[in-house]
Every structure is written in structure tokens, then in C-alpha cells.
Design a protein around this nucleic acid. Structure first.
Length: 265
DNA sequence: ATGGCATCTAACAGATGA
């Protein structure tokens, strides 16, 4: 059983790419980020025809998350406020969080803020958002032991997760961003991808500019983080670079987690 | 190297992304 994550940079611009990828890769669950469309205009029918249930939280122009699932999800919610209450509502105007129960697994689909540049207002927002994410997940952990958080984290946690040695002011690799993410992970999450390899050179995002992809000047910023029961069940985590090679690609490419079947089935 | 490119919009230039 496979759970994939893919920042598609506009679901409408990537409609054919995503449907064709799903035909080749009929994953049980696909978490999408940067759908960039209001729910009313989301192109539902191509994915329903492929047998998916659709859960969508979109907004105009920016952000937007969605989950496609072969089987229905339960207890689907959007944003932080269903768990954290009104103090978190200010964060929920940007559609970045979509959570649902897939059997006994809680799937949290995230589009972490980009942060613009170190020291900017958006950078402060990103750090604040990650602190709220920590509180959100801490509460979820009171309810369920099986949590898979996945999505576009806009953070490369270690230097081997990007093509160069980052400077402290490099967005997505700055010390404060990494610390904020580590504080989230310290709740009890582990990187599924790093269960299988310590090697560098594996990336999920390449800048459109300056020939970054053919030069493999990329970053690994799309992740699956798992609680211990799920981490134990992980049998593969792979990055599929094929869609990045096609015409009109997203700047991100899919990452696929494979879990062993639960003993319950 | 603040470029390079791609997406969106009561668009046709400017904001945003990472």
C-alpha cells in the first residue's frame, strides 16, 4: 500500500501529467499541494474516473491541498483550528493542512509556508506556523498512534538533502527553520526516506531556472514523517523523477511511501 | 550573481514561489 505526495504547482496546469502518472502509479493515497484553485473549480471528474475519492481544501491563486484516496477517508478536517481552536484560525485562511483517517492511519497532508527570505515577515510566519504545527500534532498524538505527515515542507533538514553546502541565510536550510522542524519531529516522527538510504544526491524539487534539473541542483524538501508503528511498517520510500523530465512539469516530483500491509488487513 | 522560469490574476505587470 502506497502513500504518495506531490506538489503539483497548479492542478489545472498539471491535469494531464497527474492523471497519466496515476494510471501508471495507482497509489492508494495521493497527497497534493499547491493546487491553486478554489474547490468549486477543482477538476474532479478525471480523478473520480480513476477510482479515487477526493478531499479538497483550496483557495484562489495560492496554496491549496488535496487528498485522493482509493478508499474513503474518515474524520476529514482542514487547518489547525479544528484541533487547536480559535487561536489558530488566523493560520487557516491559507489552505495548507488537510487531515483524514485512512483506516487506522491518520494522514496529515501539509504545505508548509515557503518563507520567502530569512528575516522577512513570511519567514517569521513560517516559523510561527511550524510552532503551531507542533502543537497540532501533539494533540493528534493523544488520539492516535499511527500518524503519517507528508507534503511539501519547504525545508531540507540536513546538508545532504541539497546540492550545495547551504549558507545560514539560505531559505529552506536556515538553522531556525531546521530547528523548528526538528522540534516537530521530536514529538516522535522519523523520516521514512532516511530509513532506506543515507546517501546524498536524492532530491524532490529543482528550480525551474538555470537548468537546475539537468544539472541535478536540487533539494529534498518533500517528506513523509512517521510515528514508530508506521515507521516499522515502511518497506520503501522512493522519489520518482520521471514526471520532472516531461514537458511542462511541476518543479516538484512525487515521493512514494510503501507500507507493509497491517496484520489486521 | 537578485539572474534564471513558471503560475496566477476583475491579468497584459506584478506578486509569489523556493
Amino acid at each position: 500500500m502506497k502513500i504518495a505526495t506531490w506538489n503539483v504547482n497548479s492542478i489545472r496546469s498539471r491535469l494531464n501529467l497527474v492523471t497519466e502518472w496515476l494510471q501508471e502509479n495507482p497509489v492508494e493515497v495521493l497527497c497534493l499541494q499547491e493546487t491553486k484553485v478554489v474547490d468549486a473549480d477543482f477538476p474532479r471528474s478525471p480523478f473520480k474516473q480513476l477510482g479515487y475519492h477526493l478531499y479538497i481544501s483550496g483557495q484562489k491563486s495560492y496554496n491549496g491541498v488535496a487528498i485522493f484516496s482509493k478508499s474513503p477517508l474518515q474524520d476529514v478536517s482542514t487547518g489547525f483550528s479544528p484541533v487547536l481552536g480559535t487561536p489558530a484560525t488566523e493560520f487557516d485562511s491559507q489552505k495548507r493542512v488537510l487531515t483524514g483517517m485512512w483506516g487506522d492511519i491518520c494522514i496529515v497532508n501539509l504545505y508548509v509556508p515557503n518563507g520567502a527570505s530569512v528575516g522577512s515577515d513570511k519567514y517569521a510566519y513560517k516559523l510561527d506556523w511550524l510552532a503551531h504545527l507542533r502543537d497540532y500534532l501533539k494533540s493528534l498524538l493523544d488520539k492516535t498512534a499511527n500518524i503519517c505527515i507528508c507534503g511539501d515542507f519547504n525545508i531540507a533538514l540536513e546538508d545532504k538533502d541539497l546540492h550545495k553546502i547551504p549558507k545560514p541565510k539560505d531559505i529552506m536550510a536556515s538553522p531556525a527553520e531546521r530547528d523548528a522542524l526538528r522540534q516537530v519531529l521530536e514529538l516522535g516522527f522519523a523520516d521514512a526516506f532516511r530509513k532506506f538510504t543515507d546517501a546524498d544526491g536524492h532530491y524532490s524539487w529543482w528550480d525551474y531556472r538555470a537548468g537546475s534539473f539537468p544539472r541535478n541542483k536540487g533539494w529534498r524538501i518533500d517528506h513523509h514523517y512517521l510515528t514508530p508503528p508506521l515507521y516499522d511498517r515502511a518497506i520503501a520510500c522512493t522519489i520518482d523523477v520521471a514526471p520532472r523530465k516531461l514537458p511542462k512539469p511541476s518543479d516538484h516530483t512525487p515521493v512514494i511511501l510503501e507500507l507493509a500491509n497491517d496484520s489486521v488487513g
